[in-house]
Amino acid sequence: MAVTTGGRGARSPRPEVSGSPDDAPPSGGATKTSRSPAPNRKTTWWARLKRDKFLLLLAVPGVFLVLLFQYVPLIGNIIAFKDYQPYLSIWESPWVGLENFDIIFTGDPAFINALINTLVISFVQIVLVFPIPIALALLLNSLLSEKIKRTVQSILYLPHFMSWVIVVATFQHMLGDAGLYNTWAREHNIFEINLIGEPELFITLITSQVIWKDAGWGTIIFLAAISRVSIELYEAVAIDGGGRMRQLWHVTLPAIRGVIILLLILKLGDVLTVGFEQIYLQQAPVGREASEVLDTYVYNYGVIGGNWGASAAVGLVKGLVGTLLVLGANKIAHLFGERGVYSKW
């Protein structure tokens, strides 16, 4: 058969050399191969291009957009090695070698501050935020009523779909100085919660927002992994006299171990990225020192401050380190016998 098939094997036999389906032999496929005028190899390239021109036409808008908005900016990173002048184009701006990277290598205080803040926030979130969806999933899984479980899930997933602007506004409405809780607390002489606008509590604030927004949503993947566990395994533990704790320890937890490690790897790879929109929205009241992270630094120093080359350099290094971290974490997972994000090659 002349048609080279990829992916899912010899399906969909299509006429070898024809622009439109009409002038194809009616049944196409293997039995008619002898009609092909030339041996496969020689004609395929041009013939396949001609045959698939409509398919290729359909792909054009998508491929164009991917190239323009994913690959062209990748090339645009050359401005990290240039002194970008807004009135010149990227190409016309003069090369400056590694000068823009000085900010990283000489340890500019503002940059170091942003780096430390980023790492601290990431660490706090890995320790405090990461386990919550797991605990919540185990809790939901242990519910004996499917109906209650569904209702709770529907409620807890909702905040995930709200934008950060909505979340921040809602938090101010609830916990702000003149917010619902503090107004009520003052009336009843109960302790006030002054979480918003306090530089020392900034990390507490954004961490609680992350938990509020995404802890419920985070359970989905663990619940899915738990739901694939054969019910017979629980039965076996029960028959051997094991109660719910033993079932949890010997069946449920081992079943989600792979997913936990997978997500931890992804999280480690993202250690230099912390909620950009969330932090950007709340920077003004607490100041840069408490709230600047790498992404907001790139924005404030680059787009606002006009230091295009230097901030692009910071962004580029951040991206490269992030990729290396994922690959490294993946390697470590393999060493421990886990599947990791990418399978071994």
Binding site: P73, G76, N77, V303, W308, K318, G319
Partner: peptide, 14 residues
């Protein structure tokens, strides 16, 4: 494209 993100500055300049 799943493996990388070009970054804010190049995207803005584009």
């Amino acid at each position: 494209t799943m493996l990388f993100n070009a970054g804010m500055i190049p995207n803005y300049l584009l």
